[in-house]
Design a protein around this nucleic acid. Structure first.
Lengths: 220, 220
DNA sequence: CCACCGTCGTGAAATTTTCCCGGCAGCGGC
DNA sequence: GCCGCTGCCGGGAAAATTTCACGACGGTGG
């Protein structure tokens, strides 16, 4: 193993968090932060420029989100190592991140040692998942709550996304060139497949599963 | 003015963020971090113990949320200075925080200088609002979007909260000792008053206004 | 070829949403 | 007291919707 420092890039839209990373990683010998980005596109640019050994990335960011950023980085460099470090204690997000090519998923509530361990694991090629997410994953399995994306057909998922984003049944019908009646049928079928009774439950489920994110909704 | 260091307590459930605060504040002479808490009740306990000059507090925390924590701190010490530092770029939250007794509201996306300035302002008794929230406030005024809590009567608000939390109309009716018919009428009236057409829009509005928070929903 | 699945739509029944209504209680003004 | 106003509670009926059963069509795979 080389004894030069391993290089790290930080990606987080909150300056205070990046400061925190630095403070925590500085204590660790053999690590060196070589770049910082505050959003996905900047991360992409800086990765190509500096080619760090590891990227530590948040998920919730302006512009392209973290998941999409991971995907693009891995497309550019198939061997990029990306450790997700996020506030979302949510198994669905973790699954999405790993599928997109992340090497690990650690929540921000974890103690500093967990992050350091995960960094080491990721650098040595292991996949690191923080314990709370392991627990989450186990829970959602036990609850039999499969991912909505798997239960629904492509068409149904499309309608679901529009239901959550757009407004009325009629608007969706027009956008998708369907009869309003069909949209209503789909809407009903979706709720049935997902096992929810009301639209409100539907939104909550979508939030949990990361189909809808907070930024899509309220927070302008 | 005394030339002893001003004391600060940090409240945030993410260890990495607390590290970030420290790193940013350390560069500033005359400030000293004397306590750290990771949730509302711990903050309350430590405040009584250490009596800091200023509290820097996040809003989204496990257990009692930040707003409630502010309220309790101010109840214990009417002159407590509390600076909210949060990821929520949301005017409704800012209004709630200030009403609860906060001395300022700064978002985590702000550059470090903004935090430092806000700390100084808060220490000298001024109320500091970060520019993006000012802008948000102006926007929501222009949009004529008044707070839901002001538009609705107490009863209506009660039903709204239950609609967002509970399940069916019938369950709410029973919990509130009302006829299902009345709940349905209220439900309709609420949507009318709030100017939304569908339940999904209702949830989104509630999220924006901070009536519902993410922790109430999905993220278990 | 045939069975199966996803897609799209119709029709009709069941349910919900909406709108309009009246009664009742509290509250301030005259 | 009396009046007007507002909030609260529900009934009734029309309108819209959700739900369910059903059929058609194209693709896919055994």
């Amino acid at each position: 193993m080389s004894n030069t420092a391993r290089t790290i890039m930080l990606v987080d839209d909150h300056a205070v968090v990046r400061e925190g990373y630095r403070a925590m990683l500085q204590k660790q010998p053999g690590l060196s932060v070589v770049a910082e980005a505050s959003d996905g596109v900047e991360a992409y640019r800086l990765y190509k420029e500096t080619g760090p050994d590891l990227v530590i990335m948040d998920l919730s960011m302006p512009g392209i989100g973290g998941i999409e950023a991971i995907r693009r980085l891995r497309q550019w460099d198939k061997r990029a190592k990306i450790l997700v470090f996020t506030m979302h204690q949510n198994a669905a997000f973790a699954v999405q991140a790993i599928r997109a090519g992340a090497s690990g998923y650690v929540t921000k509530t974890s103690p500093p040692e967990t992050l350091v361990h995960a960094v080491m694991d990721a650098l040595s090629g292991k996949i690191a998942i923080s314990p709370d997410i392991d627990h989450e994953l186990a829970l959602s399995h036990l609850a039999g709550e499969s991912a909505a994306a798997d239960l629904l057909t492509a068409r149904e998922f499309e309608v679901l996304r529009m239901l959550l984003a757009e407004k009325t049944t009629d608007e969706i019908a027009e956008a998708l060139h369907l009869s309003p009646k069909t949209v209503a049928n789909l809407h009903s079928l979706i709720k049935d497949k997902l096992g929810v009774g009301t639209d409100i439950e539907l939104v909550r489920l979508a939030l949990r599963q990361g189909i809808l994110t907070q930024v899509d909704l309220g927070e302008r």
